[in-house]
Design a protein around this nucleic acid. Structure first.
Lengths: 136, 136
DNA sequence: GCTTGACCTGGAGCGCACTCCAGGCCCCAT
DNA sequence: ATGGGGCCTGGAGTGCGCTCCAGGTCAAGC
């Protein structure tokens, strides 16, 4: 099994699972995106299953361009306890709405770029036959 | 008319049209995203219709996250003349492909986030009725 | 006992895309 | 003639999100 169910995970395991560097992992912790992670007797980090789960969500949100500052706010809600679930939902739902907008925007721009492509293709089509004639 | 057909446009007009600052406009020129723009006798920039058109495309590509460096390469192709149209098409088509990928990625993450939202909604649904009983 | 490898810390550095600033010029309206 | 607006320049500064580094600790294997 690539990522077995266990009590604790090492930094290396977690970094590999989410394709993050150790530096980024520590950076996220410093920035308050994760709670202060447990340590082994020798001081090495030990990520619990719920750290890993939160990190999965963090990764998802970062990959969809949620800024670190908002992720920190979300993480603070998570730490504050179950009574913040409504607020968390709010954060996530707003993010989804922004994502809808962003996707629509990308699509619109993509259409505009396609028009430019079509225009260029037209230019090539107008020129290519002439080139064929010239070379024949 | 908001943006009349004219020989030249002022920096202010162009900035407003594309919702860019004058600083950004100058920055783009410095970075080679536009050719060296014409000047009035007093040294003020005068954007021609084709500057404006290219800027429109630049805006589109930037808004879809094409990095400045690649935009510069594209702008160099534009300046190099009509024989680069094939290369320009290549740049644009690759960008469209990346955009397809990016949109698919955003959608996938959005689905994952939706699962989290649904989970939270479930938690609220499990708790709310109990709260109602308690308060009645 | 020594090396290797995974990890630790605090802090500096980086790349990108702007963004801001001081000091100056020209032109037009009052 | 004076004041304001719009623009000019070169260069410094900003914010974000990492990323890198030096110097150190610890545990396991040869």
């Amino acid at each position: 099994m690539l990522f077995p169910m266990r009590d604790y995970y090492t930094p290396g395991e977690v970094a590999e699972r989410f394709d993050l560097t150790l530096d980024t992992l520590r950076y996220y912790e410093r920035e308050g995106l994760l709670r202060r992670v447990d340590r082994s007797p020798s001081g090495h980090r030990r990520y619990r299953a719920d750290d890993v789960e939160l990190l999965g969500l963090v990764r998802c949100l970062r990959d969809t361009d949620m800024p670190i500052a908002r992720l920190r706010e979300f993480a603070e809600l998570v730490q504050a306890g179950d009574h913040t679930i409504h607020d968390r939902l709010d954060v996530l739902q707003r993010h989804q709405d922004r994502l809808d907008q962003r996707i629509a925007e990308l699509r619109a721009h993509q259409t505009a770029i396609q028009h430019k492509i079509d225009y260029y293709v037209g230019v090539l089509a107008d020129n290519a036959p002439r080139t064929v004639e010239e070379t024949s």
